[in-house]
């Protein structure tokens, strides 16, 4: 398998707190890569640095063979990394369909002139945006709610909508920040199926998760962060038995 993303020596400091220290990891094309760690280990910080939301203090990222320009989230998205948020960030007063249509922004280009005069190319693009958004709603299984406001969707459906919106940007890497947070067992199982389907369709997945069972069952490889440092990176079976990892989880077993 070829390498899709390689992060080298990523550092991030908030005032006196070293949130990330020299984190390096490699994500291969087509895998589901898990990033776990206790609360405050720096998982979301890493995510935010990777997606350009926070400026980094050091290190670099190679993505798809090219250095990734970190610092502007929309350019990261255009380069092919899409993300969801730990605390869902939908456009609450837009419909589900409109949310996904916004996701098509980076891959479409009609400007003011096209919008005002509706040239045939602009109409065709708008129709394609609409069609693709409907397909994606169908893909994540919430086509019935296309015209509901995002804020009115059930919690699990909001998570799905966020994934659909992220997929609309045609990512090579889909980064999910705790997608199972707050989900019950049934919803989590359905999410697992969805993520496996996304990978089967050729999108590499980076998954931050608290639910260790889900990560172990879903991921091909797992990295463990603790106090901003990577303490392990391996297949789940190895990580599970890594003494350092067990120690990081306060001696608690990873079997719960």
């Amino acid at each position: 398998m070829t390498v899709l993303l390689e992060a080298r020596g990523i550092g991030k400091r908030f005032g006196g707190v070293q949130a990330l220290h020299d984190v390096s990891l490699t994500i291969r094309r087509g895998e589901i890569y898990g990033l776990i760690g206790p609360n405050g280990a720096g998982k979301t910080t890493f995510f935010n640095v990777l997606t350009g939301l926070y400026p980094r203090d050091g290190g670099e990222v190679m993505f798809d063979g090219e250095p990734l320009k970190l610092g502007s989230p929309h350019e990261v998205t255009r380069a092919g990394i899409a993300r969801t948020f730990q605390n869902i960030r939908l456009f609450a007063n837009m419909t589900a369909l409109e949310n996904v249509m916004v996701g098509r922004h980076a891959r479409t280009k009609v400007g003011v002139g096209g919008a005002v005069f509706r040239f045939s190319s602009a109409r065709a693009e708008e129709a394609a945006i609409h069609r693709r958004a409907e397909e994606l709603l169908h893909y994540v299984g919430i086509a019935d709610h296309a015209n509901d406001l995002a804020r009115h969707l059930a919690y699990g459906d909001q998570r799905r909508l966020e994934i659909a919106r992220a997929l609309a940007t045609e990512p090579k890497l889909l980064a999910l920040d705790e997608p199972a947070a707050g989900m019950n067992a049934t919803e989590t199982a359905a999410l697992k199926t969805l993520v496996e389907g996304i990978r089967a369709d050729g999108v590499t997945v980076l998954l931050i998760e608290h639910d260790v069972k889900l990560v172990m069952g879903l991921c091909d490889r797992v990295a463990v962060l603790d106090y901003g440092e990577k303490i392990a990176e391996d297949v789940p079976a190895q990580v599970r038995n890594n003494p350092q990892v067990i120690e990081a989880y306060l001696g608690g077993s990873l079997e719960h």
Binding site: T51, G52, L53, S72, P73, H74, T77, R78, A82, R83, F85, R89, L90, F91, A92, N93, M94, V102, G103, H105, A106, R107, R165, A166, A168, T169
Partner: peptide, 11 residues
């Protein structure tokens, strides 16, 4: 609606 999410959508 949400500027950060808008950025994440590639806007």
């Amino acid at each position: 609606e949400d500027e950060i999410a808008a950025k994440a959508c590639g806007i």
